[in-house]
């Protein structure tokens, strides 16, 4: 085995890739949140932005594949790391007290990640697959509904009329928050970005992000449920 191939297999390289893909997904989540927020304030702005995001060739054929790769990579690598980590302790302790020295979030990233995985399956079923079907299978790139208006805002609020779906989404946002509470600041540590001057700021920003963004997503879902 050459040193070059060894580098990709090393435990540290895997953690760098986990951190980079995680930070990339955090960036994506931020833009997703901003667009969702538009749906609360202006149906027109939401429709226009959605149409742009859904039909712009750069976003559709360059950025979207990178995003899908990032999501799949983060999940696959997460499960591979979990498998390796479990193998590193084949005989478990008879009695262990992990809460004495670490947070629940940091120990159960695989669980919160798995919940987000199943949520994404539902989320893709709800929005992404119908979108791909309309645009690329039926070939309707107009973004218009039968009445001649943009369909995006209408489709969004229609999804959030079902209380069960809204509840599942909110539950997923809670796990997303737990995942981010550890993941945001952990990504910086994995990349070696730690300094007495700015690490406290990163940790505070991470906590704020992990609470505010999922809470914001939940509020938007609840808003559409009650307002229509």
């Amino acid at each position: 085995m050459s040193e070059q191939t060894g580098l990709l297999k090393s435990s540290l390289s895997k953690k760098y890739l986990m951190a980079i893909s995680g930070l990339f997904l955090i960036l994506f989540l931020t833009q997703h949140f901003i667009i969702n927020l538009l749906s609360v304030f202006s149906a027109e702005a939401f429709n226009n932005t959605s149409h742009f995001m859904g039909t712009n060739p750069l976003i559709q054929f360059v950025i979207q594949p990178i995003l899908i790769f990032g999501v799949v990579f983060h999940f696959v690598m997460g499960f591979l790391l979990e498998k390796q980590n479990r193998a590193a302790r084949p005989q478990k302790y008879a009695f262990s007290n992990p809460s004495a020295n670490s947070t629940w979030m940091s120990r159960y990233m695989i669980l919160s990640g798995a919940v987000i995985f199943w949520f994404l399956a539902l989320h893709f079923y709800d929005f992404w697959f119908p979108e791909i079907n309309t645009k690329f299978i039926q070939g309707d790139m107009s973004g218009l509904s039968i009445d001649g208006n943009f369909r995006y805002h209408e489709e969004l609020i229609h999804k959030f009329t079902n209380p069960i779906r809204v509840s599942i989404y909110i539950l997923a946002f809670i796990f997303l928050s737990l995942h981010l509470l550890h993941g945001f600041q952990s990504a910086f540590q994995s990349l070696g970005a730690r300094h007495p001057k700015y690490t406290p700021c990163i940790k505070n920003l991470g906590t704020l992000y992990a609470v505010a963004i999922p809470l914001g997503f939940a509020i938007i879902a609840i808003y559409h449920f009650f307002s229509h």
Partner: peptide
């Protein structure tokens, strides 16, 4: 195994070795 940055090691280390060292190694 790999590091998940739980920070348990730093708390249990009898010599108080800091996680700062892990960041430096990274």
């Amino acid at each position: 195994g790999n590091c998940t940055n739980t920070g348990a090691c730093e708390i249990e280390c009898p010599k108080g070795i800091s996680l700062e060292n892990i960041a430096r190694m990274n």
